[in-house]
Design a protein around this nucleic acid. Structure first.
Lengths: 148, 148
DNA sequence: TATTGTTATACTCTATAACTATA
DNA sequence: TATAGTTATAGAGTATAACAATA
C-alpha cells in the first residue's frame, strides 16, 4: 500500500518474471536506439542480421520468426528507405538475395554503437565479475536455444 | 557417444549482444504463450499489470511506455474481447479505472502459468545455482531501472 | 508437384494532432 | 488553464490465403 516510500533490499523476481521483465527493459532500450534513427526494433534486427549475411527472403523469415509475406513488407520498407537492396540469385530464378546498401551498413554501424552504449548502461552498475557472469549466463541460454 | 563429446564450448556474446539476443528469445516465447490464447505480447503485458492494480488510462500508458491514445485502442480491444472493463473513478469525472473481468483474471492466470512453463524451460538446463544467480542478476537490473 | 516470393486483405499496434469534458 | 481521455488519421507490422514464376 505504501510500498513506494519504503526502501527495500532488491526483490528477487524469480527466474520467469526476472527474465520477462528484463526482456521488456532491453526491448524498450533497443526501441529507443532504433527510434533515434527513425526505425523500429524489427528493422534494427533486420539490419543486424544482414551485417554478415546475404540471405534469401525465406531464410530471413525463418531467422526472424516471421511469415514470408511479412518479410516482403519489411524488406519493401527498408528498401524504400535506401537501407537494403534485392538482387537476383544467380542459379535460381525464383529467389532473391537481400543485402545492405552503403547507407544500410552505416545505419547498422550507428545502431550497434548506440545499442552498445545504451544497453551496456543497463548493466553499468554491476561489478565486472557479475557483469561477466550475466554475459556468460545470457550466452548459455541463447546458445542452448538457437540450434540451427 | 556422450553428449559431452559433441557439445561445443558456448560462445560468449558479450554483455550487449547477450542481453539483446536473450531479450529476443524471451519475447518470442512470450509471443507464443500469448498467441496460444489469441493474444499479443502487449495484451499479455496489459493483463499482467492489471492483476494487482486498477489504474487509470494515463497511469497505464506510463507504465507500459505508450501514448495515452495508444492505450485507448489497446483497452478497447481488450474490452471487446471481454477481458477488461472501464469503470468511472469516484471523485473525478474525467478519469476511468481499468480492471480485469472474471474472464480476464482467468486468462491472466493461464498466461502466467504457460509463461512459467515456457520461459522457465529456457533456463531449465542451468544448474540450480546458476539459475538462482541469473534470477538475481535479472532482478538487479530490473530493480535498478524501474523507478516506480 | 514443390519451392520462392508477391499480392490482396484484414487486423493489431502505435504516434501526432485535434477534440471533449472535467477540474 | 491544466488534466484525463477519446477520436481522426496515417503508417508500420503481422498472418492467412491465393497467386505467379521457376525448379
Amino acid at each position: 500500500m505504501t510500498e513506494d516510500t519504503v526502501r527495500r533490499a532488491p526483490v528477487d523476481l524469480g527466474i520467469v518474471d526476472g527474465l520477462a521483465q528484463l526482456s521488456f527493459l532491453v526491448q524498450a532500450e533497443l526501441g529507443r536506439v532504433a527510434a533515434d534513427q527513425g526505425l523500429s526494433v524489427i528493422q534494427l534486427r533486420l539490419l543486424g542480421v544482414l551485417r554478415d549475411r546475404e540471405p534469401g527472403m525465406q531464410e530471413l523469415a525463418r531467422h526472424l520468426g516471421l511469415d514470408k509475406s511479412s518479410m516482403t513488407g519489411l524488406v519493401d520498407r527498408a528498401e524504400r528507405r535506401g537501407l537494403v537492396r534485392r538482387t537476383r540469385a544467380p542459379h535460381d530464378g525464383r529467389s532473391v538475395r537481400v543485402s545492405l546498401t552503403d547507407e544500410g551498413h552505416e545505419a547498422a554501424r550507428r545502431l550497434a554503437e548506440d545499442a552498445g552504449r545504451r544497453v551496456g548502461a543497463l548493466a553499468a552498475h554491476l561489478t565486472d565479475a557479475r557483469r561477466a557472469l550475466l554475459s556468460s549466463l545470457a550466452s548459455e541460454l541463447v546458445n542452448g536455444h538457437t540450434e540451427l
